[in-house]
Design a protein around this nucleic acid. Sequence first.
DNA 1: CGCATTTGACCAGCGC
DNA 2: GCGCTGGTCAAATGCG
Length: 345
Amino acid sequence: MSNEERDPYNHYDPFNYSHQEMDRSCFPFFNDNSSSLLQNHHHQQVVTPQNHQVFDSNPSYMSFTDCLHGSMDYNILSRAFDMSCSSSEVISQIDDGSKKAVGESVGTSENNNPSTPNSSISSSSNEAPATAAAEEDSVKSKKEKNPKGSEEGDDEDKSKKVTKTKKKEKRQREPRFAFLTKSEVDHLEDGYRWRKYGQKAVKNSPYPRSYYRCTTQKCGVKKRVERSYQDPSIVITTYEGQHNHQCPATLRGNATGMLSTSLLASAASGRPSLPHEFLTQFLPMNHHHHHHHQHNQAGQQPSNSMLYSNLNIHNHHQQQLQVPPDFGLLQDLVPSFSHKQQLDP
DNA sequence: CGCATTTGACCAGCGC
DNA sequence: GCGCTGGTCAAATGCG
């Protein structure tokens, strides 16, 4: 009780992304009519952000923006963002830094792949190889309750301890970013295959939050999907981690794929960090009108509308947008995303 | 039969 | 230390 009152983020904070740093960037989505992949939506709203408060933040944190800038040609991005979008409108896109001490126990995506502890993922992020191991450990400790993990039962105790220690130092999680989408369906098609692994009720919200994991073997990307309780027409999707594989939809070879490919290529030329993730995630998202029905309870292909965007790109120094306490109110968020603070001198 | 979802239990972090 | 909360696990179940 007092809990909520005290915590300014509590009214919202659907993903508790960083109670600290958060990069709230919005950007125009790939919205190119020319790319047949996108069906034009009649009511496309493009909102611009506003009410942004900018904070200078800790150096260890790399904002989404920074990543973008650092690893890829801005022109490409700009161009991409210039295109108009498909059936859904991105209302806002929020980048969450990697930090996060919040109640995320394990959270990191890699830990899902005990089979490939040091998968490509680890190399791409700020995490050391040891990290993966640590996560693996943590998983093990968790599993101790079930008898099946007989493999290395001996190490369990050991693992537990180690886990604890490592966990402490680690604490860093995969960078995440979220965006709001106006959609009737909860789980939007984004070209990847996801398996739902959990669902929880969201505090103060009648809508549950669903947890998904990329089904690709070595890929540990996760995403959370929930509907805004403030505006039920808005779906909040949070991605975490980076895919270490191609988007299945892309492989099919379509316009979107091409687009994504080129973008990815540029991304690859630099740091394979967030941008990559970002792009791989979003691009496919726009062509989801493609049948490719998924195991989605909302199998219908809807009229999602991506609203949103605003990419704050600052090359000079690390600039982060931290979400002000009231950011939590979606109500504020959405409508007020009408302009974003321009930091440019 | 294989894979995805459902769902209650479990766990870790945090505030009190 | 306790309770709350978010996140995850995994058995059961559903579905093609």
